[in-house]
Design a protein around this nucleic acid. Structure first.
Lengths: 242, 242
DNA sequence: GAATCGCCTTAACGCGGATCAATTCCGCTT
DNA sequence: AAGCGGAATTGATCCGCGTTAAGGCGATTC
């Protein structure tokens, strides 16, 4: 089941067996890629969308001096560029962070889904809007938190997302990226990321070394980050679903 | 025609007459509101979506100390909280900035559209993804530009959006908000906004006084902002549409 | 016409994070 | 065991922006 992590812990139960079968059968190809490959460039016409099965990916934009700003980090189960289907061309680049396994869905198949499966369509739409909600939280993080809060927030978010697809136990998880990547996600230099990580380590909040994260004091970490996972639309946070 | 500004200059031509009629007839109510009213609070269950017919609105999140971060500013023609339809509850507040005229569309009608009108559905989906693209550009702006660039970028964006719905001639337009609002949009204090505005004024790039914007040197303004309107998905920027 | 209010404006001061530059660490190669 | 390259680490210095505070100006109200 290639789509087993798609919307896992995110109203996946609203998908019927038929919906899932339709989605599964619209996959044209599964392929592996190495770390740090750019798969899509901004402005290109895109004709398929990418479901991330395993590994980490990111989306980013570069400024005039070539400084990079990540706008999203993706984990297993994410439909990384589903928004490319209605948009037809993207406003940013898409790249792998680690080695990945990807499944591709041609946009022709998505057109059929929109024509024939309103329920699945609404839920695919929903999944692209979770990404938008995460974008908003990133805006908040960059606009209102200092470096300490921004880094803490990044780890809260990635942990919550990895937990939802069972890649983190909430205390410990692999995250094979470097301090510079972290800086590019949080709008700061690698040097300053290093100082912040030292502070978090010395205060016993969390550690990040050799691509391994350990969360030691979740309460403190979440307070530093002003973290509230509502914006991730995970099942447990939805008080009166219906 | 209440929906005349919806997606104006943004692939609106892909909507059939029938689609437009269906959308128009799904409007349940038109209502006016005053400036600075919060219409939707984060977490509420939403059962209708809001089309902005005239005026300015914003979406925002507050941090723990009550400091506000805007995550979007909306102009006439924007379907402000269409994302509330698939999401069902929002992760942020929605408020008016100026006096506004609004049209409401019940989510029940949107369900019918999704069931019966695949083309309109795909285009409604598209419209919510333009908002996501603007979020990404805001992330870039906050993460990689300094105060000078961020303010310049804000004005480039709002001008481009207002031009698309014919509320700006590209040189001069009303923008009845204050310097503090600008700060909340650009992640800085009102005091510093004031310094930057003075600088832009003294350098002959643009002015912003009494709710009126004048763009004096567009080339310079766009260079300062590193502005490229591709992310707005306006018609003139789409080299080979179809 | 005095008082009030919202908003703009400017100045003084301090801090957070960028910048620049070394140094250390560690996994990999040979 | 030595050599190498990428990443982590740390220090010194600088400056952009926050903070605080004070004053100005036009609009509104009584």
């Amino acid at each position: 089941m290639l789509t087993k992590d798609f919307l896992r812990d995110r109203h996946r139960s609203e998908l019927t067996k038929d919906d899932i079968a339709a989605l599964e059968s619209s996959i044209s190809e599964v392929k592996d890629y190495g770390a740090r490959e750019t798969l899509i460039r901004a402005g290109e016409r895109v004709r398929q969308s990418t479901l991330l099965l395993e590994g980490l990916m990111c989306r980013y934009m570069d400024d005039r001096q070539g400084e990079r700003q990540l706008v999203a980090v993706h984990v297993a189960g994410d439909f990384v560029d589903l928004h490319g289907f209605p948009l037809r061309r993207l406003d940013h680049d898409v790249a792998t962070l680690t080695e990945v396994r990807l499944a591709f869905v041609p946009h022709g198949k998505l057109l059929e889904i929109v024509a024939e499966r309103p329920n699945l369509t609404r839920i695919l739409w929903f999944s692209t809007l979770i990404d938008a909600a995460m974008h908003r939280e990133w805006i908040f993080r960059l606009g209102r938190l200092n470096a300490y809060g921004r880094i803490a927030h990044f780890f809260c978010e990635i942990d919550a997302k990895l937990q939802a697809v069972n890649r983190s136990d909430g205390h410990h998880f692999p995250l094979p990226i470097n301090q510079n990547d972290l800086g590019e996600a949080c709008g700061m230099t690698g040097v300053h990321v290093n100082r912040i990580l030292r502070q978090l380590r010395e205060e016993g909040v969390m550690t990040f070394r050799g691509g391994e994260v350990a969360i030691l004091d979740r309460k403190r970490l979440e307070r530093i980050a002003e973290f509230d996972p509502h914006y991730l639309y995970l099942d447990e946070n939805d008080p009166d679903r219906n």
